[in-house]
Amino acid sequence: MSSITESFARAVFLIYHLDRELLRIIMLSLEVSGTALVLASLAGLPLGALLGFRNFPLKGLFLTVLNTCMGLPPVAVGLFLYLVLSRSGPLGFLSLLYTNTAMIIAQWVLALPIVASLSHASIVSVDPVIRQASMTLGATPFQISLTVIREARYGIMSGVIAAFGRVIAEVGAILIVGGNIAGYTRVMTTTIALETDKGNFELALALGLILLGISLSINVALHVVQKRGLAGARRWP
């Protein structure tokens, strides 16, 4: 019990003093997950909109696959990408394995289905009368789509925040494709796994607390966004 308390105390000390290495690990985590999220949003939002506004053959099957991919096991994604990016794999010539780019690709794969699927769900749940009202006021099809997306904005933002929560906390995929190389591809979650293995609980706990803080901030943001959306949806004449 005393060792846990001691580890906590030293973890708080580490956070308070925030040495250069710790800061570098935190910043790299945010950079990798942030970049993956931006790229996933750039692809996922149009994909969600396309699925929300257009009908095409096998759309139902595509949606089922997309929804299933929301729960992709990170280690499976990591393993698949490892095989693709390793020297003997089809994209081995790009030499991306054990780089930040590989970690961004892995997290992009994990975030994309969440952003796309939740964007689609938000768009199709917009009351059809919004589309009709927009049409009666003389909007073009493109303007109607933009209006519907605007009405779905809180749901879409929730999806983006949820995707960030998923990627910032995952360890399996980036551990496999990033290699957890000190000073190069070591991020918060992989450091926690490594330091726990080494019995260096102070650093693991310090990073765990920071990660918890980030998760808490994400959840607070999600709560605020959902509350604003609900306040809007409470009255829908």
Binding site: D127, A133, W236
Partner: peptide, 10 residues
Amino acid sequence: TLVLPRVGVF
């Protein structure tokens, strides 16, 4: 233009 019975407020 048409004003719908359920207006469709943005």
